[in-house]
Design a protein around this nucleic acid. Structure first.
Length: 103
DNA sequence: CCTGTGACGTCGT
DNA sequence: CACGACGCCACAG
């Protein structure tokens, strides 16, 4: 079977879609929620099958957007009410966890 | 089979 | 807090 199953891909896609507006999630949390051991795999999935997903709500654990996206992602988040300070999102306020727990 | 690269994370300095 | 190095897994060449 493939290294990454279709179920894992769908799981990540589902979590990304489930992220409420005005909230963000990290690659590490999504990886854990989808059962992936490595956050890089989440990035791979988003790049491959995440074209139609609200990937702008997925940021790094540092609170910074993905590398090539940069300012565009921050602009989208800001439009949803996520304020970034100096290019950094306040994870303590906006970090959303896939447990249904708002905080 | 080995090497390089990548939407990352964690630790050490 | 910023930067660098290493680790991790998957894929392309």
């Amino acid at each position: 079977m493939p290294a990454i199953t279709e179920a894992q891909v769908e799981a990540v896609r589902a979590w990304v879609v489930a992220i409420p507006a005005g909230r963000v999630s990290t690659y590490g949390d999504l990886a854990a929620a989808a059962g992936l051991t490595n956050p890089r795999q989440v990035g791979w999935i988003l790049r491959t099958d995440g074209a139609d997903l609200p990937w702008h709500r997925v940021i790094r654990a540092s609170g910074r957007p993905a590398r090539h996206l940069g300012a565009e992602q921050l602009a989208r988040l800001r439009a949803e009410g996520v304020l970034a300070t100096d290019g950094r999102v306040d994870l303590a306020t906006y970090r959303w966890r896939p447990t249904g727990q708002t905080r």
